[in-house]
Design a protein around this nucleic acid. Structure first.
Lengths: 143, 143
DNA sequence: AATGTAAATGCAAATTATTTGCAAAAAGGA
DNA sequence: TCCTTTTTGCAAATAATTTGCATTTACATT
């Protein structure tokens, strides 16, 4: 809840107005951590008995991204997902047969030196590390 | 050149026909290694004075992906890139604004211990590591 | 509290990458 | 050459996202 206030303060600080819609979008992220698509946000806001337009959602996701409040992440299917910044960081190991997805907390960026990352000439915002293979059950079954 | 023949043989092997268009698409990858978007392939094929339809390109990229001849790279700009499989192992750093994609040869799996990978209980086959951010040009633009 | 103004919203239409249905054309074996 | 199956081109459909514009809203200032 205080988080919510902090985020709202951040908006005001930069001269953005605190609208009902904006509050509802932030609330989605705040209510339960995780990553959401624009569609999911649309549905969740609607559940709160408030209709919202997709263009409003996209415009605000863009804004929150730029302000560094949320992070746009790409998850394989071509649909963008968004998550609050500063959550517990993790990656995934995925079974190619059954699709089981498990979180792993090894992060390559912790292991790779800062300098090496900086030397790439990019302003790095995030990264994806996914390991694919067969889980214990499936590696028995497979072939 | 022999590579091209090998790929073409692979197609025939599986009962697919070897069309002019298919040969031209494979040639793009063969001519110079790298990753291409559908649009880039379209343009490159056109340069060879042969018109080709986008649906043909997409259908063939899909096919070549399934056959394990090329690799589909999902990148955050929303445009998919494709590259030949079996190139020197590398990963990518991708600009979220302009989509510029550069190869990096840091590989997390070399850095993370074998034992740690094994301890996950998966039979690991492959992995993906992508770093996202803004390239030098775009980090200036994006205020 | 009333007002003015810049910012934000909703709506509908545009855009962009990609996919699909279908008739016509081409590949490759018989 | 003929036949069957695959592939292509075309045009239209999707799906996610973006944009233009008139209307509405937030909120600082009277």
């Amino acid at each position: 809840m205080k988080d919510l206030c902090r985020l709202e303060a951040m908006l005001k600080d930069k001269g953005y107005k605190l609208t009902e819609q904006r509050r509802l979008i932030i609330e989605v992220f705040n209510d339960s951590p995780g990553h959401y698509t624009a569609q999911e946000i649309f549905d969740l806001v609607k559940e709160k008995s408030k209709s919202i337009n997709f263009s409003t959602i996209y415009r605000n996701l863009e804004l929150l991204s730029i302000l560094g409040i949320i992070n746009k992440l790409y998850i394989e299917s071509g649909i963008n997902h968004y998550e609050l910044c500063g959550q517990v960081h993790h990656h995934h190991i995925i079974c190619k047969r059954c699709g089981e997805t498990r979180e792993i907390d090894i992060c390559p960026c912790e292991v790779i030196g800062e300098e090496q990352l900086k030397s790439m000439g990019f302003k790095i915002t995030d990264h994806k590390f996914e390991i694919y293979g067969y889980c214990s059950k499936c590696s028995l079954l497979k072939e």
